[in-house]
Design a protein around this nucleic acid. Structure first.
Lengths: 351, 351
DNA sequence: AGTTTTTATGCAAACGTTTGCCTTAAACCT
DNA sequence: AGGTTTAAGGCAAACGTTTGCATAAAAACT
């Protein structure tokens, strides 16, 4: 029975009440049961602690043990619906293991990110899940020397930092095939920001998938966005549609670009998929409700976070354990209504 | 210039390097400039600390001062798009003031919520923003005695806990008027879960708005959901449509219920707004993209969080300062396409 | 010049734990 | 019965800060 206690009761109070030394209380309350305490004194202490409403002070414990039982979760922006499920996945593992999460948003600002790392380090987090890294990120590589880090959804190339990412290559390949099968021969790519690993991987995958089909995938059919936003999707779609009017399909590096592209289409009186087919990546929440229903590559957001957290947990609890450097999560195609045969009924050929 | 340091450098190291006492270092580095230090020693120490890559250990400081410079943010579910903007609003204030945020999801589970409160207290948070409270919540009232709390979006009735909420009454009133003006005389309410303050306020507002118009607002035209989810919206819409076939409009207690209601409509071959007008509440992100475009009550999510944080900050820094017990944020109607005149062209009269 | 005030810094305790080591007493030997 | 092991729990230091108080030196009085 916890009494509603206003003033904090410490281990010392419990010791006094049970007439033992504080160290005995500490051991009695410690989960890793110290063998050398008699069962009766343990139960007596536990009962008293409970009765008195004792709550351990993890700040003090953290100072002594330098383990705060907290982790940092670094994401670009919590309002981007891609990330909350990942965060929940992370927490599903870490919360059960007793960790609390400090969540920070970088807004894709490197300077901000660096500052936030300091914030996390000053708080002595035991580990970090980072879903906001850029493809080459000095700061995080430095940090990785002093605290376990796992990146989620993105990776830092050649850093050796464990990463859990998606099978971008396969997702893009399958999607290109879908478009090809529908008859498209002029496919454009709305690529993501140049410095993100997802953008890079998907662009490479695009080229790798187009080539065997004898389709061009050079810079002419690619528009590189500055940001994974709807606005950038619109801008890039406009750009590409102007530059390459014969394009009949746009493969977008993520859903938000795709949404923006659809909007741009409508802006010039065209429609998706009648005039231009458009595909996305991620299958973010609510996407199914937005017309015309984007055909997209579904990633396992929650599981991605979950597995990243499992790896981090392993690194935190067994520092010497070997963990996979890169874990690739499977993806699948979700067919909705944004792919149709090319306009004017024929599969146009390029050049 | 921060050297890339692997091992933690403490105040003691800086003291040794600069040949002063640790207390002097502490004072030199403290932001509230201790007047009684000579400018030169301060700069010397600051320079050395910088050079050595000193990072304060907030865990240790927290133990000493019992101020951890961290706050808890309690929400039902981060994947519910209502909450991320609120969280960003909170952080926009707190981050600037040096606070880090521990974010927890209650999943609307009271037991879970209680456990998470303990998690936060054990970590010694300096304050809590709670957007997940139920209308009567013993636990939080207890907690409020030992740590500053501000509730956001919801309130705990009669608790005296400062709350920042929306002008539910006005939002519902305006919306009822819109429906009335469109010709609706049989308006149903999809109410939110009974134990949430928002549900209660909106239901009361519904009754208060309907009465002067001479329209019925009793239990017959109300369906109470168990949860603010799309599924519950569907279920309640089905229920109400069966029970009150003459209903031509459904005012929903939030957007998610409304989305579910629209889905239910389509399930039975009806459409919104042609057959039934539907309205929402909150104007959550992406709502504008979902057909037919829900006419809804827009709340200021970000500002709600921002102001809640400002109040919390005040309570944390000046414990005796008086803060407003209830702050009501203005709302506005966003007109989209989900209201039309009642079906069959006439404004049907009830009973 | 002697006294008082001010300025600049050092001293040491305290915050609440955890944990390696030590002590006591009981239990076990032969 | 004397010696040795084992069990149970106490002791005290340590984690890295902050801060009230003390002190020494310098500055300002009269």
């Amino acid at each position: 029975m916890h009494k509603a206690t206003k003033k904090k009761v410490t281990i010392k109070d419990v010791a006094r009440a049970t007439d033992v030394h504080v160290s005995t209380v500490s051991r009695a309350l410690s989960p890793n049961g110290r063998a050398s305490l008699s069962a009766e004194v343990v139960t007596k202490i536990r009962a008293a602690a409970d009765e008195m409403g004792y709550r351990p002070n993890r700040v003090a414990a953290g100072l002594r043990t330098s383990r705060t039982m907290s982790v940092g979760i670094v994401i670009p922006d919590i309002t981007n619906t891609l990330f909350p499920p990942i965060v929940r996945g992370v927490e599903s593992v870490l919360e059960g293991a007793g960790y609390a999460s400090i969540l920070v948003n970088t807004d894709n600002d490197a300077e901000r990110e660096a500052r936030l790392f300091d914030v996390l380090m000053e708080r002595g987090v035991d580990g970090i899940i980072d879903a906001a890294v850029t493809n080459s990120d000095d700061k995080i590589v430095n940090m990785a020397a002093s605290v376990p880090i796992v990146t989620a959804n993105r990776l830092v190339e050649g850093s050796g930092i464990p990463a859990v990412i998606n099978d971008d290559a396969n997702g893009v390949r399958m999607m290109v095939q879908r478009l090809y099968d529908a008859g498209h021969r002029n496919i454009g790519l709305l690529a993501g920001p140049a410095l993100l690993s997802t953008s890079i991987a998907r662009r490479q995958a695009f080229e790798a998938a187009m080539h065997p089909l004898g389709l061009p995938a050079n810079a002419d059919v690619v528009a590189v966005s500055d940001n994974y936003t709807e606005d950038e999707g619109s801008r890039c779609a406009e750009y590409l549609l102007d530059k390459q009017p014969e394009v009949t399909a746009l493969l977008c590096s993520n859903d938000r670009l795709a949404i923006g592209a659809i909007d741009a289409l409508q802006g010039r009186g065209l429609s998706c998929p009648a005039d231009v087919s458009i595909t996305g990546f991620n299958d973010i929440p609510f996407l199914d409700l937005i017309p015309p229903g984007l055909t997209t590559v579904q990633i396992l957001q929650f599981d991605l976070g979950r597995i990243a957290a499992e790896i981090l947990l392993k690194r935190m609890t067994e520092p010497d354990a070997r963990v996979p450097e890169t874990t690739i999560m499977p993806v699948s195609i979700i067919e909705r209504g944004s792919i149709a045969p090319p306009r004017n009924g024929r599969a146009s050929t390029q050049s």
